[in-house]
Design a protein around this nucleic acid. Structure first.
Length: 573
DNA sequence: CGAATTTGACCGGCGC
DNA sequence: GCGCCGGTCAAATTCG
């Protein structure tokens, strides 16, 4: 065991969860104003308990390159730095030369002093000294006047900068919107394909050929993933894993088409087989960089849950547990076992600051059909991931990344500031869906149901066709009215074409979210749409959706040797 | 007895 | 280059 890991004792806790550690994410995302970037640097803070507090305001850490540039530039001058960094080429015309703002008041005094020292012993020069003094004072006054003038100029330029910033933002948003639409339009018409070969019996009947968490703007990965078992996320997470060390599940699932595993959930790569050799060969470096980015993309869900794991409708097998730095609660690692070789993994960890909050981080794309129960989370995470990655798509271009992130912020966050947090901070771009806070006007936090079917906690659960309890979120009543958006989204997108169902799903999801001024409502609606069809049988539990009683029966996993996870990570389907 | 979980060890990435 | 840390493996253990 890595004793060092258990030692923990620091803040940090990893880029992703560090951001999530805040019990109340602010949800802001002001990419054009320096403060978030300044704060984001605190993410790397390894300090102890205080780190969490500090991180409270750390919500955004997009694109470290820009951050560095910004820092660098800020050293040289305030307005100039802002103009150069925030605006980039667009603000070239507004660039302010450093020397313009570098106003040194010392020379006058220094010169005078040095002059005086030169003539201090010269009586004849005393009068000259006096004259020079007065001249210096005049110069000083002139310089002060100049300073005042420059300040005014500075103010004026700042105003202009703000104006240009606004227009630039608008253009960015527009561009991102266009870019989001483009993948769909560019997708070549493809013939229907047979269902996945490994459509196992677990998901029979109720299964819906929908991908969970398609991590890509051009969600082609979904289609490929559905047809090709993949451990690509595993490869991403642990490249060293080779045939000799791969686990049984993965080996079983991957062996048939290992070469395409990477394509299975990397949207860009997924396109390669379709495009053929030429298409694959023509893949740009940008796209490859994009792939790398997508491979790491994650969706984190924060929810109040007394159970050690939230029931999201999938079957998970625990394969590891570790103490994460800065969090006394262990982090558990699960992989999806609904289908052999499913690359999806998730990490479950309690929030260090509020242990009633369970942070579940999903990574990867399911390569198998999902039961409706799993689609609730799928809708949420896939949409969020799609948005995230559509935003980080042109990662090679710093300005574009900034642009996209800003777009995400504006589409996801403004109306649901407590709902979604986007972080492109290294190492993984992450969307955090915070379900611990109800939308404005909602009474309380949104409780997530316990994973255990027999859990005593009066939390909202949905029965599955198979008899198990499906995941569900307690939906604040006031958001139920708007369920049509997401439910329609799901239904419409069922099997548009086998080639890339997920692509379409996510594009639609992203579009829906983009169009929807209230992501919170849309999210709740998605879940509600699931609940709606099966709610009746869950009446016994449904009374908990309004009142989060937060029973304290759960003993948190505060010990590294905790043994509570063994009875919770297998979900009855 | 098979499956699932636990947990120490190992590996690679990354920062210093 | 070294150490820290996240992530994963896999033998041992536990559970049903």
């Amino acid at each position: 065991m890595d004793k060092g890991h258990l030692g923990g004792g620091g803040g940090g806790g990893g880029g992703l969860l560090a951001l999530d550690a805040s019990p109340r994410p602010l949800g802001f995302l002001n990419l054009l104003s320096p403060p978030p970037f300044h704060r984001s640097t605190m993410e790397a803070d390894d300090s102890g308990g205080g780190g969490g507090r500090a991180r409270r305001s750390v919500e955004v850490d997009f694109f470290s390159d820009e951050k560095k540039n910004m820092k660098k530039s800020r050293v040289s001058g305030g307005a100039a730095a802002e103009a150069d960094d925030a605006k980039g080429p667009a603000a070239a015309g507004l660039a302010i030369k450093k020397e313009d703002l570098t106003i040194n008041l010392l020379p006058a005094g220094n010169n005078a002093r040095s002059d005086r020292s030169m003539v201090v012993d010269d009586d004849a020069a005393s009068r000259l000294d006096h004259e020079e003094k007065s001249r210096s004072s005049n110069e000083l006054a002139a310089m002060q006047a100049e300073l005042g003038r420059m300040n005014e100029e500075n103010q004026r330029l700042r105003g202009m900068l703000t104006q240009v910033t606004t227009s630039y933002q608008a253009l960015q948003m527009h561009l991102v919107t266009l870019m989001q639409q483009r993948p769909q339009m560019m997708q070549p018409p493809t013939q229907p394909e047979p269902p996945p070969p490994h459509q196992d019996g677990k998901a029979e009947g109720a299964v819906v050929p929908r991908q969970f968490l398609d991590l890509g703007p051009s969600s082609g990965a979904g289609g490929e993933a559905a047809e090709e078992p993949s451990n690509s996320s595993t490869e991403a997470g642990s490249p060293r894993r080779s045939s000799s060390t791969g686990n049984k599940d993965q080996e079983r699932g991957d062996s048939p088409d290992a070469p395409s595993t990477a394509a299975a959930w990397l949207p860009g790569r997924a396109m390669a087989p379709q495009m053929g050799a030429a298409g694959a060969a023509g893949k740009s470096h940008d796209q490859q960089a994009q792939d790398a980015n997508m491979r790491k993309a994650r969706v984190s869900v924060r929810a109040r849950s007394e159970a050690p794991i939230i029931a999201d409708g999938c079957q998970w097998r625990k394969y590891g547990q570790k103490m994460a730095k800065g969090n006394p609660c262990p982090r558990a690692y699960y992989r999806c076992t609904m289908a052999t070789g499913c690359p999806v993994r998730k990490q479950v960890q309690r929030c260090a600051e509020d242990r009633s909050i369970l942070i579940t981080t999903y990574e990867g794309t399911h390569n198998h059909p999902l039961p409706p129960a799993a689609m609730a989370m799928a809708s949420t995470t896939s949409a969020a991931a799609s948005m995230l990655l559509s935003g980080s798509m042109p990662s090679a271009d710093g300005a574009a990344g900034l642009m996209s992130s800003n777009f995400l912020a504006r589409t996801v966050l403004p109306c649901s500031s407590s709902m979604a947090t986007i972080s492109a901070s290294a190492p993984f771009p992450t969307v955090t869906l915070d379900l611990t806070h109800a939308p404005p006007g909602a009474p309380n936090a949104v409780p997530l149901n316990a994973a255990r079917p027999g859990a005593p906690a009066p939390q909202f659960q949905v029965p599955l066709p198979g008899g198990g309890m499906a995941p569900a979120f307690a939906v604040p009543p006031q958001v139920l009215y708007n369920q049509s958006k997401f439910s329609g989204l799901q239904i419409r997108r069922r099997r548009p074409r086998r080639r890339s169902p997920c692509r379409s799903c996510c594009s639609a999801a992203a579009a829906a979210i983009t169009a929807d001024p209230n992501f919170t409502v849309a999210l709740a609606a998605a879940i509600t749409s699931i609940i709606g069809g099966q709610h009746a049988a869950a009446a016994g539990n449904s009374n908990a959706n309004n009142t989060n009683t937060n029973t304290t029966s759960n003993t948190n996993n505060t010990s590294s040797n905790n043994t509570t996870s063994n009875n919770t990570n297998s979900e009855t389907q």
